[in-house]
Write a protein that binds this DNA or RNA. Structure first.
Lengths: 366, 366
DNA sequence: TTGTAGGCGTTATCAT
DNA sequence: ATGATAACGCCTACAA
C-alpha cells in the first residue's frame, strides 16, 4: 500500500521525474509519448498511488491545509451552532477544493504568552480562517509568520487591514429596530457578549435611525450580560432590567437564539408573560427560533455561506495570488428580518410594572 | 522568521545534528557539555525556532495530526451539538497532547467510489477518530491504509474488532423505560435515525426489561421517522402515532433534544397538550432540555468526555503502542436519567383519543 | 523524449 | 563530546 513515485517508475520502466511530471500534469509532460503518459497513469491508479503529503509539502512549501481557528474567549466553541455553521461552510469549501482543514483554538486570555496553535508555527498550514473575537495583538503574531488570514465576522478590536467576511450587522439591527419602532416601541436593547464592536455598532445603528425619520423615536442601547450558562445570563439580564425604572426600561431585546429561549423560561418562571412583558428578537436566526412559543422573530443571515466565502477568498489567494489585504477587503452579507410572533405593540397603559415586582430569585434554575 | 536547524547550528558554531539532538531531548544529548546545550536552547528561543512539520514528518513518518471524520449520512454535522461535543473533547485532548486536528466528512452514499478524505491517503494523518454511522466497507478501506482508528459511539453496521468509546445505551434506555413503567406507562417508543444498531438495542433493552420483574409490563419499540427538518420529522411522527389504534399507541417517546422541542411545538399546534398527551424523554440530555416547558426529563451522558477518551486511546496507541484492536476494546460510559417534568402517569380513562382526532396537517410549519 | 542531480529540513547512524 | 553523511519522497532545472 505504501506506494511511491519510484514504485511506479520502476514498474513502468521510466524515471521518477517522468512520473512526477506526468502525474502533476506539468506542461513539460505534454512532450512525452501519449503511450508513456497513459501507462504511467494506469499503473498509478492500479497501485493506488497517493503523493506523500510531507514530502510534497517539504518541496513545494505548500501543505494543502488551511486552519480554522477561534479564540477561546468563546465558550463552547465547537458546540455553538453559530460557529458550527461557519465551520460547515469552511469545511465544504475545503473539501471541494481538495484542501485539508485543521481546527484549533487559541488562548488569548493572557496575550503575552498566549498559546499559539502549534501547527501554524510549524508551517503545517497555508492559510488561516479566523473567527470569534479578533484581537490585534494576536493578529500581529500571525503576521510574523507571514500566513494569509481571512476572518469571518468583523468582531475585531480595531479596524484591521485584513479580509473580513461578515454580515451587515448594522443594517440588520436597523431593520429590526425599525420594525419594533413601527410596532410602537421606543426603547430596545441588544444583549452583547463581545467587548469589541458592540458600542460602535450600537452608535452606527442609532445614527442610521436618526436618518430614517419615521423611527427617530426609538433608541437602541447595549446590555452587557454576565453568567456561565444561558440560564444564569437570563437571570442576570432580567435582574438588570428590573433595576431600571419602568419608563426607561427597554421593551424589546435582541439577542441570540439560546439566550432568547432561556429568557422566555426565566420570564415565565418569574410569573411574567412572554411576549407581553418583553419582546424578543433572535439574532441571528436559527431553527431554535421555531421552538419558542410564540416563535421568535429573527434576523437571518447565511452564516454557512459566510464561512464558505471566507475560505474561498483564502484559497483563491493561495492559488492565484488574489490580494487579500491590499484595499481593506470586506464582504458584507445582507441580513433579513424574518417576522414571526415574538413582538407585539408594547402595553401602553401598564408599562410592565410586573418586571420590577419580582422576587429576585437567583440560582435555582433546574 | 523562517528559522532552520542550520541557522541555530551556524550561530552557535556546532553541527545541525547536535542541535537536533539537543532540541529533541534525546538521551544522546546528555553527553554534550551542559554549556553547549544551554547555548543551543537559548539561540533557539531567541530565533523563535519552530521545527518544520513537513520535514520532520518526512523523516519520522509521524505527522502529529489526528483526523476526526464523520460520515455525511449525518445531516448538519458541524452544527449538530451531539457531534460538536465529541469534537470539543477530541480537540481539547489533541491540544493538550500537542497534536493537530484535521476534520473531514466522508461520503458513503455510494460506497464503491466514495470520496475518501484526501489527507488520509496522503499519510498526512497518524490516526483517526471515527464517528457517526460506521459502515464496514468504509472501515475496510481505512484498514488498507493501515491507519489506527477509534470510534466514538458504537453505531456500527456489525460488531467490529475495533476500539469504540460509547455510552451504555442499553442501560440508559433501560433506566428510562423502567422509570416510565413505574409511572404506569406500558408502551414507549424510541425514535431512531440510524439503520444500524437500533433494532438490536431495542431487543437488548426488551430482554433486560424482562429480567427486571417489576417492569415486565412495559414494552419498547422503534419508530423510524422521515423528514428533512425536525419540524417535518415531528409531523411525520405524530402522523404515525395517530395511525396507531389508541390502545396500542405508545404513551411516551424517547428521542433527541431538538426533535423533542419540535414535537412539543407540533403537539400544541394540533391542539393537543404536552406532556399530558405524549410524554417525552430526551436522549441525550442537553441544555435545550431546560427550554421546554415543562423541562424535559433526559438521559444524560458525558459526550465530550467520550470524544476526549477516544482521542486519548488513539494517541496513547500512537505513542506507546497500546493495543487498539487486540481484544475488541470497548469503553462504555454510564448514563444517568435526569428526571425533570416531561413525564406523567398516563391518562388511564381516555387514552389520548385526541391524537387520532386531528386534521392531518402537513407542510405549513413556518 | 527522457534521465540526472541537487535540494527541501529533519532525524539517525555512523565516525571521530 | 561532537561532526559527517545518508536517508525520507518529491519536485525541478538542466543535461542528454
Amino acid at each position: 500500500m505504501a506506494c511511491r513515485l519510484s514504485d511506479i517508475a520502476q514498474q513502468v520502466g521510466v524515471d521518477v521525474s517522468t512520473v512526477s511530471l506526468v502525474l502533476n500534469n506539468k506542461p513539460l509532460a505534454q512532450t512525452f509519448k501519449p503511450k508513456t503518459r497513459q501507462r504511467i497513469r494506469e499503473v498509478a491508479k492500479e497501485l493506488g498511488y497517493q503523493p506523500n503529503a510531507a514530502a510534497r509539502a517539504l518541496q513545494t512549501k505548500r501543505t494543502g491545509n488551511i486552519g480554522f481557528i477561534i479564540s477561546d474567549t468563546v465558550h463552547d466553541v465547537w458546540v455553538n451552532t453559530y460557529f458550527g455553521k461557519q465551520l460547515a461552510g469552511c469545511e465544504q469549501q475545503c473539501r471541494d477544493r481538495g484542501y485539508g482543514l485543521q481546527i484549533s483554538r487559541y488562548n488569548l486570555q493572557n496575550i503575552d504568552q498566549f498559546v499559539f496553535p502549534k501547527k501554524v508555527g510549524q508551517r503545517a498550514i497555508d492559510g488561516l480562517v479566523l473567527t470569534g473575537h479578533i484581537a490585534s495583538a494576536v493578529l500581529l503574531r500571525f503576521a510574523e509568520f507571514n500566513i494569509p488570514c481571512v476572518s469571518v465576522g468583523d468582531d475585531a478590536e480595531e479596524h484591521l487591514k485584513m479580509a473580513m467576511v461578515s454580515g451587515d450587522v448594522v443594517s440588520g439591527l436597523h431593520e429590526a429596530v425599525t420594525y419594533l419602532a413601527q410596532l410602537g416601541h421606543h426603547r430596545v436593547s441588544r444583549v452583547t457578549h463581545s467587548n469589541f464592536r458592540s458600542q460602535e455598532v450600537c452608535d452606527q445603528v442609532a445614527q442610521q435611525l436618526k436618518q430614517s425619520a419615521q423611527t427617530a423615536s426609538c433608541s437602541m442601547t447595549n446590555i452587557h450580560a454576565h453568567g456561565e450558562t444561558e440560564s444564569q445570563i437570563a437571570i442576570n439580564i432580567l435582574d438588570q432590567l428590573a433595576a431600571i425604572p419602568a419608563k426607561d426600561r427597554p421593551t424589546a431585546l435582541i439577542t441570540y437564539d439560546k439566550l432568547c429561549l432561556a429568557l422566555i423560561t426565566e420570564i415565565e418562571r418569574r410569573g411574567l408573560a412572554y411576549p407581553q412583558d418583553l419582546n424578543l428578537i433572535s439574532f441571528p436566526n436559527s431553527d431554535l427560533c421555531l421552538y419558542a412559543r410564540p416563535a421568535l422573530t429573527a434576523i437571518d443571515m447565511d452564516i454557512e455561506q459566510m464561512g464558505s466565502v471566507a475560505t474561498k477568498l483564502l484559497i483563491d489567494h493561495l492559488e492565484n495570488g488574489k490580494p487579500l489585504d491590499s484595499e481593506q477587503l470586506r464582504m458584507s452579507f445582507p441580513m433579513e428580518l424574518i417576522v414571526r410572533d415574538s413582538c407585539l405593540p408594547p402595553q401602553q397603559k401598564q408599562p410592565s410594572p410586573a418586571l420590577s415586582a419580582v422576587t429576585p430569585s437567583l440560582g435555582e434554575h433546574s
